[in-house]
């Protein structure tokens, strides 16, 4: 087995070097910022709802990229954090606590705690074994919510009112929610960018590229990886808060292993270890799903074939492709 396992592509090329990734992200954010106006002008205001969903998943994919792209830690249970965040909102709301700040705080703490406990155990393993142990914890969280009858069990829980801020229903309109989600995305992006560039981030990347060397120069990777895992879990939990508000409904279905797999696919599709790639991957994945599913009932076959072709004929996902188109011939 390759010992680097999951690290791979990131180690081979620093595709779309720092500045390119930043410019790419800024372009995406600018497009997101004017999107509601464009949607209105184009006579399709509903597109904002779809775009909100895309942004929510982009946040989750971004958090996964921190551990996957920079830490070579492949979590196959990442959807569980989103689910915990979403359930924090719905459960607090059924008990009359509708303030988004309280909900978000609880969501972040709950998902961070779950990440701390499961991460502390999981990080003893490496590579594929790590993938599977995170899957195991994800499944446990899923089955726990399925059997939790008091909060709807498998049928899920309807959120009758979106979260409020100090009593004001700021998120009630689609536009309000959209910009709130966008603000979280931009905030998470710059936070993670700073994290990655810091000394902490350098240790994380160093471990990804060569674990033995990092250990030889006196770093124990474990606390760094665990911290990154907890941070990623907390951000995904925040994405869950937004998801609950966007669908006005929570369900254990948000936590299935298929959903975790989709998040991995988004990150890999976009290109790992660039942060921008994760956002692009979420956009690409969900837009493809949206467009293809409206064209043909059997759209999965086209979608699947595209994924295969992308792997076979582009290296490093969408970001790799963009890097080669815009960044000259590196390879």
């Amino acid at each position: 087995m390759k010992d680097t396992d999951t690290a791979p592509a990131g180690a081979r090329t620093p595709r779309l070097a720092g500045r390119g990734a930043l410019i790419g992200a800024l372009v995406l954010f600018a497009i997101f910022a004017v999107l509601p106006f464009a949607a209105h002008a184009a006579g399709d205001p509903f597109f904002i709802v779809t775009a909100t969903r895309i942004i929510v998943f982009a946040i989750a994919a971004l958090s996964l990229d921190l551990i996957l792209g920079y830490g070579a830690i492949v979590s196959f249970g990442h959807a569980a954090f989103m689910g915990i965040g979403a359930y924090s909102v719905a459960i607090l709301a059924t008990h009359g606590i509708g303030d988004v700040l309280v909900q978000a705080l609880v969501a972040v703490l709950a998902s961070a705690l779950f990440a701390l406990v499961t991460g502390a155990i999981s990080l003893r393993t490496k590579g594929v074994y790590f993938i599977m142990i995170t899957l195991a914890f994800g499944q446990m969280a899923y089955f726990f919510m399925v059997s939790l009858s008091a909060y709807g069990g498998d049928d899920g829980l309807t959120l009758y009112d979106r979260s409020t801020l100090f009593g004001a229903p700021l998120l009630d309109g689609d536009i309000g929610l959209y910009y709130a989600a966008l603000a979280v995305l931009v905030g998470a992006f710059f936070l993670l960018r700073a994290v990655v560039a810091s000394r902490f981030g350098r240790v994380l990347r160093g471990t990804r590229d060569n674990r033995v060397r990092m250990q030889a120069i006196g770093f124990s990777p474990y606390p760094y990886q665990l911290t990154a895992y907890v941070l990623a879990g907390a951000i995904a939990g925040l994405a869950g808060v937004l998801l609950a508000n966007q669908t006005e409904f929570v369900s254990p279905a948000y936590m299935t292993w298929q959903r975790s797999g989709e998040l991995i696919v988004m990150v890999v599709l976009g290109g790992m270890g660039t942060l921008t790639g994760a956002i692009a991957g979420a956009v690409g994945f969900l837009m493809l799903e949206e467009i293809l599913s409206s064209l043909w009932v059997h759209w999965h076959i086209v979608f699947g074939a595209l994924l295969v072709l992308i792997v076979l004929y582009t290296r490093g996902g969408l970001a790799g492709l963009a890097g080669r188109v815009f960044g000259g011939r590196r390879r």
């Binding site: 390759k2 396992d5 999951t6 690290a7 791979p8 592509a9 996957l68 492949v74 590579g127 594929v128 797999g261 991995i264 696919v265 890999v268 599709l269 790992m272 994924l307 295969v308 992308i310 792997v311 076979l312």
Partner: peptide, 8 residues
Amino acid sequence: DHLEQVLA
């Protein structure tokens, strides 16, 4: 690498 295999 493994993740590209997963995707494909």
